[in-house]
Amino acid sequence: MAQIGLTVRIFDCVTEIYRGRTLLDTDGLEHDGGVNYRNGLANAMTAFQEAADHATDLETLILAEYVFLSQELNFCNPNDIQAFASLSQAVRSFDDAFLALRTVDDPPVYAGAENTHPHHYKYRVKDMPKDAFHIACISHRVRIRNILRSPGINMAEKDLLMLRSANMTVAQAAYLEKQKTALAV
């Protein structure tokens, strides 16, 4: 049997986390919910680590984060205005990151886009344009740092959050190389 792709495993573990959270609120199935949630988290740790180990596949790396954010947004109460806005913004930010990732693989197009970015250091990352990909990663690391400060997070959740944050740094480093290639630096 062919090895199951990382992408399938990402959707699998996030689905299990989702089912776990749902069953935790279902009379008589709370135990199943807890088992699914913990199993999903454990599989997510493996999947996110593997995504980082294969950082040249940036699309899968940020897809992992995007799928996780989508799950968090799905569970967020729209009446929790601050959290809902933050998660919605994160999802939109990664939508932009996907577009940037496609553009950077087209050097003539990316060279044109580069001209629209100010060369002031505020708008640069290691002298490369601070474009939508970098902005998504930077914003998300800040968001995760804020979540880590909240009370009530268990160790498994904390470990996964730290890995997700570290993956943003890995993603940015890999993306910088793509930018340098696109701009022939």
Binding site: F11, D12, V14, T15, E16, Y18, R19, V67, S70, Q71, N74
Partner: peptide
């Protein structure tokens, strides 16, 4: 696990 429905939003 894929026999169970994939949540619609995913």
């Amino acid at each position: 696990r894929r026999e169970a429905p994939l949540p619609a939003f995913l």
